[in-house]
Design a protein around this nucleic acid. Structure first.
Length: 321
DNA sequence: AAAGGGGTCAACCGCCCGACA
DNA sequence: GTGTCGGGCGGTTGACCCCTT
């Protein structure tokens, strides 16, 4: 079954393409079009395998390729689509005109993944990292018996519920994953647990949240500003409906649809970097290889739409990440 | 100035699938 | 049903670059 690897046979050249080879390939495709990649290199006078030619064309030489840095909007589209599609880079690329799957894949692995990790978000599941919850659980076990409010704050039943809640998100269907992408709200990925406030990442079904709201052990969830930047109608109404506790998550297929039709909205979209990026108060980036622009981009954030827990002053949660 | 360590990204690899003879 | 072909996919590699020491 299948076909021979090809490129390492018959003395075919591998490695970086020269300008001359590029020109030959471009000239040939401009004259004859592409396709028939196996015979193309011979006809074009190239000592390359067809696959190498195809990749060079689709990933680099194609005239409609957009070079240069990814915009904030593109970042957000990628994150959104990845939360729904996973590592389906070609599917993601299809929604980002001018970008190739390879480029997006590289960008994800080198930039976005790290960014999400800094934010305490699992880049695979787009859920809060469970190891952080486990850390909370450790805190709970050590503090539970010594401080009354901590016992309430880190109520094991609450942690258990939260863990199950978050775990369930990893296996739930697309709409839940999309919800995670839409309403993850976090304060500061560089210093996630600042002062007396713990960032809250809310996601889940209505039943999940009803459970949360019904749990007396929950800390005081409040939202600084629940007027969500949805003036263009992009963000789901779910966020608008969150006012303190859940007032009704209503996620259905329309959310997936929103993501899938997202690219049409890019030109006029309301950035939701405020949801996924960071405030300008970040101090030292963890990635010292970041360019100034990266730092600025990572710092892009609006000051509203923050969901926070009130944490008693006595509890120092700095450095939990 | 030089070494080395880490980040980036173009290119490659291996596998898979659908179409077709 | 089987083999071949054309093409696509996600994962990985390695050369190059830049920054730090």
């Amino acid at each position: 079954m299948g076909k021979p690897p090809g490129c390492d046979k018959n003395g075919l050249k591998k490695g970086p393409w020269t300008a001359e080879e590029d020109q030959k390939l471009i000239d040939y495709i401009q004259k004859h079009g592409h396709g028939r990649w196996r015979t193309l290199p011979k006809n074009a006078g190239l000592k390359r395998c067809g696959k190498s030619c195809r990749l060079r064309w689709t990933n680099y030489l194609r005239p409609d390729i957009k070079r240069g840095k990814f915009s904030i909007e593109e970042d957000e589209v990628i994150i959104q689509l990845h939360s729904v599609l996973g590592n389906k880079w070609s599917a993601i690329a299809a929604r980002l005109p001018g970008r190739t799957d390879n480029e997006i894949k590289n960008y994800w692995n080198t930039h976005i993944k790290k960014k999400l990790l800094r934010m305490g978000i699992d880049p695979v599941t787009h859920a809060p990292r469970l190891d952080l919850l486990e850390l909370s659980s450790l805190l709970s076990s050590s503090l539970y018996n010594t401080a009354g409010f901590v016992g309430s704050m880190f109520n094991p039943s609450f942690l258990s519920l939260a863990t199950a809640f978050l775990s369930s998100n990893q296996t739930k269907n697309l709409e839940i994953n999309n919800l995670a992408g839409n309403i993850q709200q976090i304060q500061n990925p560089y210093e996630p647990y600042q002062g007396n406030q713990v960032p809250v990442i809310t996601q889940g079904s209505q039943a999940d949240l009803n459970q949360f709201s019904a749990n007396p052990g929950l800390p005081n969830l409040r939202q600084i500003d629940n007027t969500v930047s949805d003036s263009k109608g992009f963000l789901p109404t779910t966020i608008q409906n969150i006012n303190g506790y859940n007032h009704g998550f209503n996620l259905g297929d329309q959310n997936l649809q929103q993501v899938c039709t997202f690219s049409e909205k890019i030109p006029n979209m309301v950035p939701f970097g405020s949801l996924l990026s960071t405030p300008s108060s970040s101090s030292t980036p963890l990635n010292n290889g970041s360019s100034t622009e990266d730092i600025e981009r990572d710092s892009y954030c609006s000051s509203n739409n923050m969901l926070i827990f009130d944490v008693p002053k006595g509890l120092n949660v700095n450095g939990c990440m």
